[in-house]
């Protein structure tokens, strides 16, 4: 059975540390004039993006190309997919192309899982619906580790629309695996009802949590949530759950501020916070390439994947 990276829970602690250590080595490449390694020469990586996400696609594309893989970008727009071709048919096409790795972004939770049952290559989840985004969690953990060192016992606060956030899900799972203490902060409407079963704590009071946080991760809040009555107004959301300069001042000296992007400046994060020295938002982008290189190398570089998990139908 082939192995895939679909959920952050697919990574054991050893797996996760291997990815982070590998990413650390690969990050050096970014400082060189020749940013390319021959490692995945002859391997084919298909970027299968059913949702628009230029940032994530470019990050994966750069990662695969730096490892010399052949990259095929397959975006749903303008392709047969938008003409009603099923995911299954797309999977069969990928099989015909001999894809060794498939990076998939899809609006439906579980689409990568389904795909993994239909193709021989390794599937990397680049974000599925409101489920998970494991490479984002890896790059976040990588960023935290570079700034703060070992994550064991570190206090990470994730703020915002947890209910609809694949970033939050993956981060809770991965950070727990790595020994960090995660606290979710959100209005109760934006927390899943069964959050009690997750390996983290929950608070509705951002000000109470901030002074004890080593990391604050702000999630993007979408305006359409307001129309679905998750909160009364953007202004109220921002006042209760946004991170502004005053709130940032409550953080310990060493604490960092993260955001997976794209940001709504002035809504969940104030411009002065986003641009402050605590902010890792720019690093996160660069670190994304290193983390994704590590994942692609460990999944596709050898005779069999060194990380990840099989999918049972």
């Amino acid at each position: 059975m082939n192995r895939h990276l679909i959920s952050a829970a697919d990574l054991s602690r050893d797996d996760a540390l291997l990815v982070l250590d590998t990413a650390e080595e690969l990050a050096q490449i970014a400082d060189r004039s020749i940013k390319k390694l021959p490692t995945l020469r002859g391997r084919t990586v298909v970027n299968l993006f059913f949702e628009d996400s230029t940032r994530t696609r470019i990050s994966f594309e750069a990662a695969a190309k730096r490892l010399s893989a052949d990259v095929i970008n397959f975006s749903a727009k303008g392709s047969s997919v938008s003409k009603g071709e099923s995911l299954k048919d797309t999977a069969l096409t990928l099989e015909a192309m001999g894809a060794d790795g498939v990076v998939i972004r899809h609006g439906a939770s579980g689409a990568p899982h389904r795909l993994a049952g239909w193709v021989r290559g390794s599937v990397v989840n680049a974000g599925d619906g409101t489920h998970e985004h494991p490479t984002q969690a890896l790059l976040d953990a990588f960023t935290m580790r570079r700034r703060l060192g070992d994550l064991e016992g570190r206090k990470v606060t994730i703020v915002g629309d947890v209910l609809h956030s694949r970033v939050a899900r993956s981060n809770v799972l991965l950070l727990h695996t790595l020994g960090a203490d995660v606290t979710l902060v959100a209005p109760p409407t934006l927390v899943p009802v069964a959050v009690g079963t997750w390996p983290c704590s929950v608070s509705y009071d951002l000000d109470a949590v901030l002074p004890k946080s080593d990391v604050v991760m702000m999630l993007r809040v979408q305006q359409e949530r307001m129309n679905a009555a998750y909160f009364p107004s953007v202004r109220e959301y921002s006042r209760r759950y946004g991170l502004d300069g005053d709130r940032m001042a409550q953080l310990p000296e060493h604490a960092i501020v993260m955001h997976p992007g794209p940001m709504n400046r002035g809504v969940e994060i104030a411009a002065e916070v986003a641009d402050s020295v605590r902010s890792t938002i720019v690093e996160q982008v660069a670190n994304g390439v290193s983390a994704r290189m590590a994942v692609l190398y460990l999944l596709l570089g050898g005779s069999e994947p060194a990380i990840g998990k099989g999918v049972s139908e």
């Binding site: 409101t130 899900r169 069964a194 959050v195 079963t197």
Partner: peptide, 18 residues
């Protein structure tokens, strides 16, 4: 809604059916 709202729906990221 996609599946029973509870632990599984929260983990799978599928819209809950309370």
């Amino acid at each position: 809604a996609q599946m029973n709202e509870g632990e599984m729906s929260a983990a799978l990221g599928l819209r809950g059916w309370p």
